[in-house]
């Protein structure tokens, strides 16, 4: 087996005095789609923040393509090839769709391929062409999610990380998002997906890590996880999980 594309080794992280991660380790191989599952506060988003450099881990290391990127600044890490679709989409509301996409391409801008990239995004997300000159803030939630993904893809990431892409979206649009993940996977893109809707996530991923209280509880292939963990239990039920205790 080759060395993993992304290797997170025993990272600890905290927000001020509140400790959020107690030693998370995970690996993502090239071409894989990996999910981080768990309830609110399990440490999923914090893990992504530590990988992207938004949050500095207090200890542990993050290695990407053989290079130690621990505690690098977010702008440097995105240039290495990791793009994040942040939780809540984080569209620049006052900027047009065009400008949002242009900034998405900031990390790896090439004049020659920019036009072609845009065209590709229009094929993937036809709505963005329609809304090209509108402010991002005027788009619907689903459209904003599409824009956020397109914006991340404009950077030509080697690893795409999605933080709760289905959060707050209608079931129909959630279907679209998962269909998109499947098609990106077919194109060979490596994806790290954070999702609360474990049942849906396990349908599209190769491998998953189940986080609880800042630790990896269970990990394995999607099938393993399905076998090891009772999906019908409170925890993996998605909506029913609110406030439920982790039972493994």
């Amino acid at each position: 087996m080759t060395t993993p594309m992304l290797k997170v080794d025993d990272i600890h992280a905290s927000y001020g005095a509140v400790r959020a991660l107690h030693g998370i380790s995970l690996e993502v191989n090239e071409g894989e789609v990996v999910a981080l599952l768990g309830i609110n506060g399990a440490g999923k988003s914090t893990t992504l923040k530590s990988i992207t450099g938004v949050l500095r881990p207090t200890s542990g290391s993050v290695t990407f393509l053989g290079e130690d990127i621990t505690s690098r600044s977010p702008e440097k890490i995105v240039k290495r090839g990791i793009s994040l679709v942040p939780e809540g989409r984080e569209i620049f509301g006052a900027l047009t769709v065009e400008e949002n996409l242009r900034l998405g391409a900031f990390a790896s801008y090439h004049r020659d391929r920019y036009k072609a990239d845009l065209k590709e995004m229009f094929e993937l997300f036809p709505i963005l062409e329609e809304r090209f000159h509108q402010p991002g803030g005027l788009l619907s939630g689903g459209e904003q999610q599409m824009l956020a993904i397109a914006r991340a893809l404009m950077a030509h990431p080697k690893l795409l990380m999605l933080d709760e892409p289905s959060l707050g979206l209608s079931p129909a649009i959630t279907d679209d998002v998962f269909a998109l993940i499947t098609s990106l996977r077919e194109r060979g893109l490596t994806i790290l997906l954070v999702e609360q809707n474990a049942e849906r996530a396990l349908e599209v991923v190769d491998k998953a890590y189940l986080l609880a209280n800042g630790l990896v509880e269970v990990s394995g292939t999607a099938d393993d996880i399905k076998k090891k963990v009772d999906i019908a239990s409170v925890y993996l039920g998605g909506e029913d999980a609110e406030g439920g205790e982790v039972q493994l």
Binding site: V54, S73, F92
Partner: peptide, 10 residues
Amino acid sequence: TTTRLMGVPA
């Protein structure tokens, strides 16, 4: 923060 995630140096 999101702007930095686009690769724009703070």
